[in-house]
Computed example of a mutant assay.
Amino acid sequence: MSPADETRPAERSGLRERKKRETRVALSQAAIRLCVLHGWADVTVDQIAAEANVSVRTFRNYFTGKAEAIAASHLERMHRVADDLLARPAGEPLWDSLLHAVLGQFVPRGNSTPQNDRWREGVRLMLAEPALAGEIVKANAAAQQELAEAVARRTGTDAAHDMYPKLVAAVVAAGSAVAVEHNLRAEGPVPLGVALAQVFEQLAAGLPVP
């Protein structure tokens, strides 16, 4: 067997996993888009599958329902935050790296999401849906664990035994949630990027009393 033959199974496996991840993201984004625009109660799994151009059976292979599908976007986004954190320059201060990583995923360049009053109201109503709360909690726990492992690698600590990486991950998750909430609910909405920058500036400063 040639070296090329030996690498092909790994390449195929990597391609399959990438396609699975892309399908999960497409289904999750379709669920969010439809529920924000049309309301939670008026969106079905059949509609989500059609929006993502896959079968209902494919949807069921990935998610148990639309709540799990929506929550998956949070986990995927934090997965990319962890990846971005590890890709930042080694000598960069940790909180600067975290801010860049979070901004890159929460406020991506070229984002075409319609951030108007109707969209923000739709997001608020969707996030208030009781059926979604439990899935968000589960996704957030998994996201924090993954981010803690990235922080541990970045700082030379141990995610299994040291509190520091877990604390940083928890603070990043909470701070990001506060920024999103402020963006959605503030009168005269504050751009999400501005809100995130303000949150991380205060965190990096040790949350001084105003």
Score class of each variant (00 low, 15 high):
residue 33 R to K: 07
residue 24 R to Y: 11
residue 37 L to Q: 12
residue 26 A to S: 13
residue 43 V to L: 12
residue 59 F to S: 03
residue 28 S to Q: 13
residue 39 G to S: 04
residue 45 V to Q: 04
residue 59 F to V: 11
residue 33 R to I: 05
residue 32 I to R: 15
residue 35 C to M: 08
residue 31 A to V: 15
residue 53 N to A: 13
residue 64 T to G: 12
residue 26 A to C: 07
residue 63 F to C: 02
residue 63 F to R: 03
residue 64 T to A: 04
residue 24 R to N: 06
residue 21 R to I: 02
residue 29 Q to V: 00
residue 63 F to E: 04
residue 34 L to Y: 11
residue 30 A to C: 11
residue 63 F to W: 02
residue 63 F to Q: 03
residue 48 I to Q: 00
residue 42 D to W: 06
residue 44 T to Y: 08
residue 62 Y to K: 08
residue 37 L to A: 13
residue 48 I to P: 00
residue 28 S to D: 15
residue 44 T to W: 12
residue 16 R to V: 10
residue 42 D to T: 01
residue 56 V to T: 11
residue 60 R to N: 12
residue 42 D to N: 10
residue 42 D to A: 13
residue 23 T to H: 02
residue 31 A to I: 08
residue 46 D to H: 04
residue 22 E to H: 03
residue 22 E to K: 09
residue 56 V to Y: 08
residue 64 T to Y: 13
residue 32 I to M: 10
residue 54 V to D: 02
residue 40 W to P: 15
residue 17 E to P: 01
residue 45 V to K: 01
residue 30 A to I: 08
residue 34 L to S: 05
residue 33 R to Q: 12
residue 44 T to Q: 07
residue 22 E to N: 07
residue 35 C to K: 08
residue 17 E to S: 07
residue 26 A to W: 08
residue 34 L to V: 02
residue 24 R to V: 04
residue 24 R to A: 12
residue 24 R to G: 07
residue 43 V to Y: 07
residue 64 T to V: 00
residue 35 C to P: 00
residue 27 L to F: 12
residue 29 Q to R: 15
residue 59 F to E: 03
residue 22 E to Y: 01
residue 55 S to N: 00
residue 53 N to R: 06
residue 44 T to C: 04
residue 47 Q to H: 13
residue 30 A to T: 10
residue 20 K to V: 02
residue 56 V to N: 14
residue 25 V to L: 07
residue 62 Y to F: 11
residue 23 T to G: 08
residue 47 Q to Y: 10
residue 54 V to E: 03
residue 50 A to E: 07
residue 44 T to K: 06
residue 41 A to Q: 14
residue 32 I to L: 10
residue 54 V to G: 10
residue 19 K to E: 04
residue 34 L to M: 10
residue 64 T to N: 09
residue 18 R to H: 06
residue 40 W to S: 03
residue 65 G to P: 14
residue 32 I to F: 07
residue 36 V to K: 12
residue 33 R to W: 05
residue 26 A to F: 14
residue 45 V to A: 04
residue 47 Q to W: 11
residue 63 F to Y: 04
residue 60 R to W: 14
residue 25 V to Y: 01
residue 60 R to G: 12
residue 27 L to K: 03
